[in-house]
Simulated assay, not measured.
Amino acid sequence: MNRAALRLSARVREVLEEAARRPDRGDISTTTVIIWVAAVTGAVLIAGTIALVIAKYNGQLNNL
C-alpha cells in the first residue's frame, strides 16, 4: 500500500512540474465545451421531436 501511495505522489509531482513548465498544453477551452454540449443537445432535441411526430402520425402516414 505504501508503494502505491509513493508512486502516486511521485506521479502527481511529475504532472505538476510538467504543468509548470508548459502552462499551455492545448487543453480544450470552456467555450468549446459549451458549444459542443449545445450542439449535441440541439441534435437530440430535434431527433426526439421528429420521433414524436412520426409516432403520433404513424397511422396517417401509412395510408399515404
Rank of each mutant, 00 (worst) to 15 (best):
A55P: 01
A51R: 08
G59R: 05
T30G: 06
T41Y: 12
R21C: 02
I50E: 00
A39M: 09
G59Y: 03
N2F: 09
S9F: 03
L16C: 15
V40C: 09
V37I: 15
L52G: 02
T49V: 08
V44D: 00
V12S: 04
I46R: 03
D27N: 06
E14L: 08
N62D: 12
V53F: 13
R22L: 07
E17K: 01
I34P: 00
Y57I: 08
R25I: 07
A51Y: 07
G59K: 11
E17G: 00
L6N: 11
A55Q: 07
R7T: 07
A19F: 02
R13W: 09
G48V: 04
I50Y: 05
G26L: 04
R25D: 12
S9H: 04
I34M: 14
E17Q: 05
I35C: 02
L45R: 02
T32W: 02
K56F: 10
R11C: 06
V15I: 15
I34R: 14
A43R: 03
V15F: 01
A47E: 03
V33E: 11
T32R: 10
R11P: 00
Q60W: 13
M1I: 13
L45K: 01
I28N: 02
N58V: 15
T30L: 15
L8A: 13
R25K: 13
A38W: 04
N63M: 08
A4T: 14
E17T: 04
M1K: 13
R11A: 11
D27L: 11
A47I: 03
A51K: 09
G48A: 09
A38R: 08
T49Q: 09
A4C: 10
A4E: 15
V37P: 00
G26I: 06
T32Q: 14
A43K: 02
R22D: 07
D24P: 00
V37T: 10
E17L: 08
G42N: 06
R3I: 13
R25N: 08
D24Y: 06
K56W: 11
V37E: 06
G26T: 08
A39H: 05
E14C: 03
E18F: 03
T31R: 11
G26R: 06
A10E: 11
G26P: 02
G26Y: 05
T41G: 09
V12G: 00
R3P: 00
A55K: 07
G59N: 12
E14H: 05
A51F: 02
Y57C: 04
A39L: 14
L64N: 06
A39G: 03
E14Y: 02
V33A: 10
A38I: 13
R21Q: 07
V53W: 02
N2S: 15
R7Y: 05
T49E: 06
G59V: 01
V12I: 15
